[in-house]
Design a protein around this nucleic acid. Sequence first.
DNA 1: TCTGCCATGCGATCAATGATACCGACACAC
DNA 2: GTGTGTCGGTATCATTGATCGCATGGCAGA
Lengths: 231, 231
Amino acid sequence: MAETDPLRAAMIEAAERQLASSSDHEIATRAVCEAVGVSQPVLYRLFGDKRGLLDAVADHGYERYAALKAAQERTGDPVADLHAGWDGHMAFAQANPALYQLMFTPRPWSHSTARERVMDLLVAALTRCAAVGALKLEPRTAAQLILSANIGTALDHIARPALFDDPAPSHRMRDAVFSHVLAHTSDRQDGDPLRTAALRLRAQLQLGGAEALEPVETALLQRWLERITQP
Amino acid sequence: MAETDPLRAAMIEAAERQLASSSDHEIATRAVCEAVGVSQPVLYRLFGDKRGLLDAVADHGYERYAALKAAQERTGDPVADLHAGWDGHMAFAQANPALYQLMFTPRPWSHSTARERVMDLLVAALTRCAAVGALKLEPRTAAQLILSANIGTALDHIARPALFDDPAPSHRMRDAVFSHVLAHTSDRQDGDPLRTAALRLRAQLQLGGAEALEPVETALLQRWLERITQP
DNA sequence: TCTGCCATGCGATCAATGATACCGACACAC
DNA sequence: GTGTGTCGGTATCATTGATCGCATGGCAGA
């Protein structure tokens, strides 16, 4: 899993550079090979395909994305972190439009897992919110909602980059989705209190586990909580 | 504006067919030309470019989209129409995934106006909502929000078509955005009543105009309403 | 009616690009 | 020392976007 093939890494970086500077968001395998001083067959040996190269570039983009997230998150208030996460996502899209589209726009073949892993990061951030009772939905459900909205907004901004100048549209969407997902501090008592309590406990279990319980007991408890929070 | 060049139309339709049936969402100019029995230079004479052809396909896709919208809308309740419009958008994405991406995914060059025109349709539908006092935001602002969310959700569904089976995720997003944009019948009295009244009047003017006022007077009134509804 | 023009389409061809077949060189185990 | 396998290169193929110059045919005007 170390994945420290310097040649492979160099080609991925060259491809990413050319993708960023290309006017049509395309790359040529020849140009990538020339940039690192090797010939075409090595590319096909390393990546199998042009699609394989693009998948690798997308996955590498995820690494940068995850590093950016890791550098900023965890202020102590998971809800504040969530807001910052939305804005960080938009900033990443603005800084790397071509790479962003490669990562988040559906490609029919694409074996890249960038989107799924970004989703996992978001689920983790949401689970931390649920652990303090701030979440009205299941983390995965909420993550799907938030990620789709975030991507939709980012793609709109990429199509019309002038939008990036004004944070209002992005924040409107953010507030709209978050208010549907988060338990307002004001209307803390909305919905079924049993359900919210169960969601909260479930998230706590997912995060830390319970030393006081045996693994079997924990598993059974989780299944009960699932049934409570299901509908 | 009649645009009734049968050859041009045939090529656009052939291109759309091949786009829909291609596994990688790509088309070859040669194949399109062969399908209609002409040779390549005619394509370049008619569309100038492969990009030009794709733009034409996207615009043709808008025609189909608009026809679908025109066939369903106007039940009398503009808010109900808005909900149906969201679902219709998702259905269009499911039925024509490749065409959908061509229309709504940002392409660096692309002179297609499909997205802008879809936005205009949405603005019109929202203006009808505002005319009955159901809108909390300016129609254009609301339209931008709704369209981004709709596209984001549709792209997510296209990437994982199994999602289309369950309407819940789509409807969650729909409700989240709509509740942020529409004036709930329950909390009709939320926000500034003056502002909502002004928004409502503004929409009514946009729809029908006021016969009782001179054009200059109407124009001045609209500027006043703009200032009232601005912040 | 004849003539020149131009719109329209075509065969041939170019250039770029994705992809592969085959060869040579080097390291290493036996 | 020799076989083996990894690694890289040269040459080449096939596809595809794009263009050049020519042929054809209808039509306005003498």
